[in-house]
């Protein structure tokens, strides 16, 4: 059965969600961030450009709700040595466009730059996001986010938080 969509999200609705997500990550607030995802939501950061498979190939991140929940708790744990340092981020998202609208799923692609200041070092990450958004009773939510770093296959240092 195909659901009938009465109104697809506007580009303004989409921007609002993406900027809300960026604001939570800028503050390293995973408690707020996780609420933007559906219960079956996933977060994927491949290690190859054009990587097709998160399960039969290694990735930098591939988290479902279980790992998001563990990560959310880990970030606040007083004995996580790698989290002893403040994590400050600044995300800029641009070039936002809807690339697909199928039933309830809106696929959105954008470009991002993200500065992460952590352990006395500022790192610049950049690349593209692909969000799959879904309408729910509580508004627009993220069902899947794919982060393609332009240097995903380089020897990277620790990536301390979702980008």
């Amino acid at each position: 059965m195909t659901n009938v969509i009465t109104s697809n999200p506007t580009i303004r609705d989409i921007e609002e969600l993406l900027y809300d997500e960026a604001a939570f990550l800028d503050k390293a607030d995973l408690d707020g961030w996780i609420e933007l995802y559906t219960d079956d939501g996933t977060y994927w950061m491949p290690v190859l450009p054009d990587q097709e498979d998160p399960v039969n190939h290694i990735s930098l991140f591939y988290d479902d709700r279980v790992l998001m929940e563990i990560r959310r708790r880990n970030l606040k744990h007083p004995r996580a040595a790698s989290k002893d340092y403040p994590i400050r981020c600044s995300h800029i998202i641009s070039n936002i466009r809807v690339t697909e609208q199928v039933d309830e799923i809106t696929t959105v692609e954008s470009n991002f730059h993200c500065l992460v200041y952590y352990n006395d070092r500022q790192t610049t990450y950049g690349g593209t996001y692909r969000h799959e958004l879904v309408r729910s009773d509580s508004g627009l939510k993220i069902r899947h986010k794919r982060v393609d770093l332009i240097n995903c296959d380089a020897a990277l240092n620790t990536i301390i938080i979702y980008l």
């Binding site: 929940e69 708790r73 880990n74």
Partner: peptide, 9 residues
């Protein structure tokens, strides 16, 4: 920290 986080969840 990760063991506690996993066990808590």
């Amino acid at each position: 920290s990760v063991v506690d986080a996993a066990n808590d969840y």
